[in-house]
Design a protein around this nucleic acid. Structure first.
Lengths: 185, 185
DNA sequence: CTCGAATTTCAAAAACTTCTGAAACTGCTT
DNA sequence: AAGCAGTTTCAGAAGTTTTTGAAATTCGAG
């Protein structure tokens, strides 16, 4: 069976290679970015590929296009599902799972923010609270130490609460916030 | 010569060990966090130590307290200087360099944001512009591809411009933004 | 229930990052 | 201008993360 028998009404043939090249360049750029954030380059590339093609792709498509192993493709796709920035789909009469990337950039960023708050900020706040609670209340050096911790705690509580408010899963919260700030003097 | 002959008017002796323990716990927590962001655990620990002690420390202090090599301490301190979240100082009649962490949390966060915009967002935007410019203008598939890139570009331009406005080196820009959002319905 | 396609898991290998420690360097002091 | 305290550099070692590929597992169809 042919791999992907013209997935949509084919455009002028000479554009296909060109498009593929542009997509590859985007995948590379986004992959670079990913490795600077906490996720692996490959995971970012898989996401980039799904985003930029805008089509449902299966594990084999991803493997072939990015030249990675089955295990790696499977792991990366799963991790992206956990982050909530890609979703499963199915094609009629095909047992395979296909994956599509969230196409709304703001929704994607909201999902990323939520996940990072959960993974990074919450545990940090928990540690800070613990440390703060075990601190004695007397002594000048201790008082200064506590003040420094409190300043940090206050900042992260603000971040957490703004995150809750503007990075919720539905709605235009984040986009609204951006507009509000853009217009503010 | 004694290492650090009571650097400030000593509090009750039994508190010193306790304070040290609290500081160590903070260093560990912040170090963890650092490794999730793009910086190395050690670099984050060095910063944590400087922040939480609030005192100027020299390379040897850092080496001893964190049990790391001279090279590592030197590299980490330098990287933190590059990020603009610690500064050099000197003590009268002492040839050594000492380092202090920025103590204002908001200023610290502004510095981190600025640096991350510069290192992560700017290069990505540059790549996106390049890819976008090389794209042909005709063909349906190409048009969709371009639309996806444009959505991303728009988002990162917004991020960049908000960053410019609210993460400037001086002033209360970021804190103001946070208050504005906190009060907004 | 059995078959087989699709997916997940995982131990080992490869790739990459961080750390060390000794040597090279810098620039102050005498 | 030699000595020296302090700092930086860097090649290799140690440690960590990522990737592979083959085996185990899942799950739908017959």
């Amino acid at each position: 069976m042919a791999r992907r028998p013209s997935p949509e009404p084919a455009g002028p043939a000479h554009h296909d290679a060109e498009l593929r090249d542009l997509q590859d360049r985007f995948v590379a750029a986004w992959g670079q970015m990913g490795s600077v954030w906490g996720i692996s380059r490959t995971m970012a590339e898989v996401h980039a590929l799904l985003y930029v093609t805008g089509q449902p792709l299966c594990t084999d498509d991803v493997m072939e296009r990015l030249q990675i192993s089955r295990g790696n493709a499977s792991m990366s796709l799963r991790a992206l599902l956990d982050w909530g920035i890609i979703a499963r789909t199915h094609k009629r009469g095909d047992r395979k799972e296909y994956f599509v990337a969230e196409q709304d950039v703001w929704a994607m960023v909201r999902a990323i923010l939520r996940e990072r708050l959960k993974r990074e900020v919450n545990p940090l706040l928990a540690s800070l609270y613990e440390i703060r609670e075990d601190a004695p209340r007397d002594g000048e050096a201790i008082a200064e130490h506590n003040a420094r911790l409190d300043a940090l705690i206050e900042f992260f509580e603000t971040a957490e609460s703004l995150g809750q408010r503007f990075a919720g899963p539905a709605g235009a919260g984040l986009e609204k916030a951006a507009r509000l700030l853009t217009r503010a003097l």
